[in-house]
Design a protein around this nucleic acid. Sequence first.
DNA 1: TTGTAAGCGTTATCAG
DNA 2: CTGATAACGCTTACAA
Lengths: 340, 340
Amino acid sequence: MATMRQIAAAAGVSAKTVSRVFNDDPHVLPATRERVESIMRELDYVPNSLATAFRSGRPSVIGVAVPDIVDPFFAEIARAVERTARDHDMSTLVTSLGDDPDRERAVLEPMLRRQLAGVVLAPIGDDQSSLAAWASRTPFVFVDRAPGRLTADAFTQDDFGGAFAATTHLVEHGHRRIAFVGDQLALPTTAERLRGYRAALTEAGLPADEGLIALGAATREGAAGALAAIASRATALFSSNAVCTMALLPALAEQPLPLVAFGDFPLAELLRPSVSVITQDPEALGRLAAERIIDRLDRPDARYRRSTVLPVHLVERDSCRAGAATPLSRAIAPGAPPPR
Amino acid sequence: MATMRQIAAAAGVSAKTVSRVFNDDPHVLPATRERVESIMRELDYVPNSLATAFRSGRPSVIGVAVPDIVDPFFAEIARAVERTARDHDMSTLVTSLGDDPDRERAVLEPMLRRQLAGVVLAPIGDDQSSLAAWASRTPFVFVDRAPGRLTADAFTQDDFGGAFAATTHLVEHGHRRIAFVGDQLALPTTAERLRGYRAALTEAGLPADEGLIALGAATREGAAGALAAIASRATALFSSNAVCTMALLPALAEQPLPLVAFGDFPLAELLRPSVSVITQDPEALGRLAAERIIDRLDRPDARYRRSTVLPVHLVERDSCRAGAATPLSRAIAPGAPPPR
DNA sequence: TTGTAAGCGTTATCAG
DNA sequence: CTGATAACGCTTACAA
């Protein structure tokens, strides 16, 4: 772990000259440069990045905090942030928040104590007001989920529109009793999707039936319970997010129901029936969020639109069709290629 | 962004006293302490972690470098590292290496330039000798994949034994022509699994048929090609890793073959037929690797067994059974609960 | 072209 | 109990 001074001593120059050589400052005699360079190689010199970072004062790390890095949706956000950061000579700190909103702040704080250029955050709670003090120090950019009780940059997707489209799609397939299955309303995404679902029903002139709304479906048990609660009244299902959709699958095998789900997931198109989904763009969310952080770093006084909403798309597969010739519970497996 | 000196000035004490207060040093008069604390609150003091880290010289970040953070196997490793790091007041830097071995080093270096306690690495190439210089500075702990041409800590799983068990399992189901489908032999895992496959065939007194070995199956196209290459000769299939298995699924739907796969994956038990797999333990890999890094930090002179191999387990589902009453191509979907 | 001095924010040492 | 001083490794400003 040779330091600059040690190189300088060995080369018989001052530390500053070593610094100049290392940073390709032209004001160094070729002979001096060569001598210093050879010593640097010999002693395997690598600058202490902590010292450099400390000295420069410019943060070179972006934080990513998501509910769970194992969820491919959030992993894709993290990967996009990391790529973007890398392109700007920055690194990425990642943390999984877990599922207890009360611990959100505790998990976040150790990360915030570091000098970060910013934090890309998909929160698990509905109130980030306690982060306000940190926000003045480290810019937050929310992704997927809008901030609660806090003003901050946000890149979200059209939750309302996606849910509206999904529900309308089921209406167009002739369904009149469509259930909404989700996790918790505390999540802004779930709340917005419920709004979209309701709006679509209203638009179609269908009655609002609270008995068709089932929450707590993020686990298999919860999903089975939710399905049981609505199964007798519903002829079709809108699943509000991918975690719920995957949790629903076992129960749906027993009790098939036409389905459109918010959020694509691996193998969705290989299941039978393949699952119709509203697709999001996590790569874009992560990339845009990271770019915003870098922009803010470069131009601290620039002003930005706080909230950006990305479009979503309905990908029609088989699960939205009413049980046709082949009932849902006895279709083909494990995975023909998708229609398109 | 108040500094310690500013707090000190405002409180009419020296910086050192502020430091003492902040670090709960008992040698401070209660009155002094209170005055300083109130000023700290007032000015919203947060210590500059860069300065602290620089000063202490103790690295407080662990790096994680995996082929792709979106792959749930590697994401789980990363999550385990992060949890372990967090328990020790450390943070986690994550990077995805991609799939080009020639870029492995280039992607790693920016991360290595930082002062890291160590790097948890699942390499994509088969030669890490060029990292030797870095290894003396930052300890590497390899996970899943053993190092190539480099001596370093490694936590891997029993690739040989798992492949042996999977192949033997198919033999016990009466198969005599079992194909091996994998990605590339440059990966030490693939090479070991191929050895285990071959050993199982030998043990069973079956001939080695090179025509039953197909590589390059990490993409759908590659997997379809691999399957086409062996389909006419094979009556069953051993897939060497989860990426290949998932890539194989579309082609297998057209051309069903009994299958045991190395590596569990989401929804494997919900496909029809559910996929029999050799399960690994990515959580343990990540946790053990992170603990090793922390151990080495605490006790630089301790000696460790370089290589630790974790056991794997065969989880028997339906795909290993020969096409029974219900042919593979027309089974049930999308997902009854697993047998157990 | 090269070197000296000073300082980034924190903490260890040692004095008072 | 409290404070002055120095130091971590590097770079900027200024001199020589």
